[in-house]
Design a protein around this nucleic acid. Structure first.
Lengths: 166, 166
DNA sequence: TATTGTTATACTCTATAACTATA
DNA sequence: TATAGTTATAGAGTATAACAATA
């Protein structure tokens, strides 16, 4: 290890390295499952899942972009792919003609349903397979706090998102 | 192990979503810092860091590929980029003429040193900024257990070549 | 034959900037 | 002018397969 004015304790280093390795391995496994079972990229799955969770299965492009950390053009690209496969539809919003509303189709929900069990199985075994209920409680508490911290601090690191101009 | 119809408890769901979001936001921030300060991709940073941690600052391509989850060609590509910038050298191994030994140069160590403080600062503030020492202890304990579990279970998804045949 | 690494190639993904159209 | 979204394009990254060289 390099000697430098680091502010990370050995325990913090351990937590950080473990975090990054768990993250990489889990992500790899999940992406492979999504690709193999549903021919979905991770982003496409996120989009479908968000739409599936929406009350009416539809959301505006901008709202989707806010949820997934993405550039507008990247979102357009992925939405096009999903539309070509018939998993979503895109149509102009009646309220605001500038907006595009994306909606999951039945085919999209079918793919979601095909992919979901294996996805849950993976997370269940890989992420939680060796943890007690108490561990999971702790993990949820700590990570949710960290997530809130992350949400609050840097809104600038990601792509240019300008919902509101200060 | 888990029964066939695996399910995630609300707490598990919370932990999973928080984990993925923290992972994505942290990774985004780290990649930006590495790119801005050192013009390094995340993989390039990993390679440099591994070499910097090695006793003599050198490792074989295969050993590097084993550490970082990568295909051989992908590693060759990244090593080429690093070599073009003069951050590493590649030379045939004296012991085994088939092997290529990658070594960090002084320039490489300089870039590492330039990048490291900001990297540590990011992790310190984003990942641990809102956590107590006790939280960090818990996080390290739980994630290290999960990491060990992950290392044991999967047959290495992206393994084109095995070092050893079982 | 098996292993190490490179090359050739094709594909996916992402972002920036220019553009259209609506508000 | 500002916003929503698309398009054009360019670049980075990755993987697979064929390949050469060495063991």
């Amino acid at each position: 290890m390099t000697a430098s004015p680091a502010r990370l304790s050995p325990t913090q280093l351990g937590a950080y390295f473990a975090f990054t390795e768990v993250s990489a391995l889990l992500r790899h496994a999940v992406e492979k499952q999504l690709r193999d079972v549903g021919r979905l990229s991770y982003v496409q799955f996120q989009l479908l899942a968000r739409l599936g969770d929406s009350p009416d299965g539809r959301q505006r492009m901008t709202d989707l972009a806010d949820g997934v950390v993405y550039s507008r053009s990247g979102l357009t690209y992925q939405a096009q792919l999903l539309e070509e496969r018939g998993l979503v539809t895109r149509s102009p919003s009646p309220e605001d003609e500038r907006s595009t509303v994306v909606a999951v189709t039945d085919a999209g929900r079918t793919v979601l349903a095909e992919v979901f069990p294996g996805h849950v199985e993976l997370v269940s075994s890989l992420l939680f397979g060796d943890l007690s209920d108490g561990d999971v409680d702790e993990l949820a508490r700590i990570l949710e706090r960290t997530r809130d911290n992350l949400r609050a601090i840097p809104p600038r690191s990601a792509a240019p998102r300008r919902r509101r101009t200060p």
